[in-house]
Amino acid sequence: MTGRPVLLEARDVTIRFGGLVAVDSVSMAIVPGEVRGLIGPNGAGKTTFFNAISGLVPLSSGLIRLGGEDITALPAHRRAAAGLRRTFQSVQLLPQQTVLENVLIGLHTSFTAPGWRDRRGREAAAQAQVEHVLAFLGIAARILTPVNRLTFAEQRLTEIARAIVSRPRVLLLDEPAAGLSPTEVEGLGELLHRLRDEWDVTILLVEHVLSLVLNRSDRVTVLENGRLIAEGCPEEVANNRAVQVAYMGVE
């Protein structure tokens, strides 16, 4: 892993809400092609940290870099345009709209980007990209189905499709296994590696299902009470004393 340039970097990120320190000076560096797991007990600050990276929560101090560029001051929609996309813990789609419309929303910035003049061509190209990503995720037949008629797992995939259709550099997944059956979680685990290997996207994964994180991540970062308490490959982290104490209360 050494020697490769860092793709997503958080340095001394601190987030305070009034007197509460939700995230306390957390640093993290993710290299291209990595699946990084982010775990920690409830209230560890995972979601806050995650929101700070995607630009929804302002930092109190510290900085965030994407591909070497400082994006700390960029609003969320500019970060998305720069290639940082995310999904949400509870699926956030337009329930009455079709899969096509929902996934096309993920391509908004390809219409607003300067240079490409031909408007009709843009829309056709965008729809072709949607067809391609749906085929990749195995839900191509659903393209014109309203989202509220999909199964829950298909809705998850639709949200992932919207997040990756623009071929972002970094994909932030916020508890993608929530609400899925064990079989579906297994499928999701395989998908994570296909996304990394075939879709060329680097992944930061927040997840409560520990087996998924430990089996599928290249490296794992552990937060507790807003602080980073461990980082390393899954085996190292699983055997880490501080992690075991934080999770199981083992003394």
Binding site: L56, H77, A80, R86, F88, L94, Q97, E101, I105, H108
Partner: peptide
Amino acid sequence: IAIRENEIVARSNGIS
């Protein structure tokens, strides 16, 4: 329609 449903989702998808 994206801003009608959820502004946070809209922003996360590059919509101002």
